[in-house]
Design a binder for these strands. Sequence first.
DNA 1: AGTAAAGTGTGACTTTTATCACACCTCAAA
DNA 2: TTTGAGGTGTGATAAAAGTCACACTTTACT
Lengths: 226, 226
Amino acid sequence: MASPECRICSFKSPAAEYLSNLELEALESNCAQINFKKGDVIFREGTLATNIAYLKTGLVKVHMKGPAGDKILRLMKAPAYLGMPTTFADKVNNYTATALIDSHICFISLDTFRDFIFKNGSFAYEIILDLCQNELKDYQRYANMSQKQLPGRVAEILLCMSHELFKSNKFELPLNNSELSDFVSSSRESVNRQLSDFSKEGIISMNKKELTILREDLLEKISLKG
Amino acid sequence: MASPECRICSFKSPAAEYLSNLELEALESNCAQINFKKGDVIFREGTLATNIAYLKTGLVKVHMKGPAGDKILRLMKAPAYLGMPTTFADKVNNYTATALIDSHICFISLDTFRDFIFKNGSFAYEIILDLCQNELKDYQRYANMSQKQLPGRVAEILLCMSHELFKSNKFELPLNNSELSDFVSSSRESVNRQLSDFSKEGIISMNKKELTILREDLLEKISLKG
DNA sequence: AGTAAAGTGTGACTTTTATCACACCTCAAA
DNA sequence: TTTGAGGTGTGATAAAAGTCACACTTTACT
């Protein structure tokens, strides 16, 4: 655990940009940075939610137990608040956050965070904006994922990784086949077959975990038509 | 359009309970109540989002165009803010809200609402709480709906209607078969067959739109196991 | 380097659900 | 009271995706 230096932190959230020096000092003394390795659980479903988790650097999967196994709800890349809904709305975490690569997390005391909301309108407004933006994206993904069939669902997450997460046509898959199936709500085998098919058709190429999107246009078409 | 009397309104949201008399006066002069009939569109996907819509009384479906037709995201019963995410996070509505029964909506000027967030910490906190609670419920439903197969999905929404919306084992279905299929992401025919099956098995009984849950225990079991 | 554990690739078969087709019901407006 | 539009019920068939089985590959650890 490093001693935090929130005042000079260059990974501040948009909301934290609105904090005064005095408030940043309060943050410093009520905040702890912890570093997680790939695969480490940051907070776990069913345990007490006592802090706000802020993802300063890294990549995280948010997932929960569904009726038929694990369900990945979303991937989050830094910077982002990880568990606001589960921390504010329930004493107990409703979902788990797991690091997909080495990640730095700041745990902020809930009281301090709440205090900022009460006393700093700009901070509160940014938090609300953030929650709203996330909900909108969730709705979009929900509508898409629930109506598309497998090729479209797989195409969508590949494009999402390429556009939002890595901003490149070539990237290392952060999820294995089984996790991919948890994300698109399918079976490990079906996802695997789908990736094979995309490869055979020359839409993507894979070398170990290294994935390259060769025909983004086709992938886009498959994603759109479902 | 009735002239609003927010100060003495008995349908205030938890957040609005924290508004001062002065703020309630400001609300009164920046707010309009409009009454919608069953089937009326309250705000529509693709149009400009200019106000916060507060559902004072009634029942509303929130839905959006998906790749394979309409997708119902959630049913909302009064009291509730209808379109915060879409109003705050985007200039254009990302989804449509349609009245399922006669409903009273207050349209609140976005500037006024934003002002409350900036200046009244308790108000802001209640709004954040509300957003978080909704997101948590959405995640839960998302994980369930994406992993269960049809019997479980239909069982789940019937139980949801019974428990959350109508608080009774007997209620009038607010959706027709086609809308039900938009909600559970299936086809009209499959949903219809599923309801027939539940009837044949004595789990529910239907008389026109009037639905009675006869074996809640069985329905619960079907919903749980997927 | 050797070994166990985790992950991948693929065929055969089964289950679930969509689609198509069509008859029938219900209710409101002419 | 007709008429027609929207909604419902159900069979037959086809398509999609899950499951099972098993071999192979990669990774991580000692």
